[in-house]
Design a protein around this nucleic acid. Structure first.
Ligand code: FES
Ligand code: FES
Lengths: 144, 144
DNA sequence: TTTATTTCGGATAAATATATCCTATTTATA
DNA sequence: TATAAATAGGATATATTTATCCGAAATAAA
């Protein structure tokens, strides 16, 4: 469904959100340990998310990654997915035609479209705040 | 969503189904032309589908690929997807945890599960007969 | 200002997915 | 039986994704 990079990116963002709520910056080392992902690869993805204004980085000693406390609830899953995987999952044809087009649909179009729209709605209405809360409460997990 | 191989496999199966209803066998050359896919690569995928009993091949002169007329309506999209991409899309965790587990859910689990189940239901209730009919009637297309 | 720490970014490696090529095998027909 | 036409399958090539490595730049604190 999502690329590995995107999976790591979402898990990392949730972990950063949880820690930022507690006023703690985190390093790629700590992040990749807590979400069980390859460190250098994860660091690349974090840089990508910084460039896309999903998270913030602070360079130098005592630096790390964080998210402004008051924006955590405004960051949607869709922003992370689009930053890393692009928007093909929202608009692309399920059977790989050049574009999904009502006037030139593939045989799966009608049935696929509704699922794709549900997925888009879900990603656009889910924010980091609620996901981080699940982790905080021990109801959900980021690894294993 | 699906791999290229899976997209080609579904499009090819629909094309074969349409032709088998008309009593015509088709070659990889004709298939890849009609679904606009790389020929040799498509041929590999067709072999895979034969091994998984989704389609039938007839070797030698006047051979080709076909589907028994009376089984076309019984072949579900899910069989093709599972043959090529495996069943990860049905059972895998959306955030890449080792397994999707109610007792150890990722933060996206509840919301993701319902979409994944809708997708599975769609693939399990859609058969080649109806898809081929769309093509036959000119309501749907397999390329461009 | 020096030092230690940390992100940034380029280069490279490894793994996987996609695609091509060529030969062997099968089979209907002449 | 010989021939031509077609799928099967191994070997190989290319592209993309995933992953690692290392030095440069930034920055807080001593
Ligand atoms: S054309 Fe294929 S999903 Fe819309
Ligand atoms: S555990 Fe992640 S989707 Fe179920």
């Amino acid at each position: 469904m999502f690329s590995k990079a995107c999976e790591y990116g979402i898990r990392a963002s949730i972990f950063i959100a949880k820690n930022s709520r507690e006023g703690r910056r985190v390093s790629p080392r700590e992040i990749s340990k807590e979400i069980d992902s390859p460190q250098a690869f994860t660091a690349k993805i974090l840089q990508d998310l910084v460039r896309h204004d999903v998270i913030k980085s602070v360079q130098g000693a005592y630096g790390g990654f964080e998210i402004d406390k008051d924006t955590i609830a405004t960051i949607k899953l869709s922003q992370i997915v689009e930053a890393i995987d692009g928007n093909g999952i929202y608009s692309g044809c399920g059977l790989g035609l050049r574009e999904c087009n009502e006037q030139h649909p593939c045989p799966m179009h009608d049935k696929f479209k509704s699922i794709r729209n549900d997925l888009r709605d879900m990603l656009e209405t889910t924010n980091l705040e609620e996901l981080a809360t699940g982790i905080k409460n021990g109801e959900a997990f980021l690894k294993v």
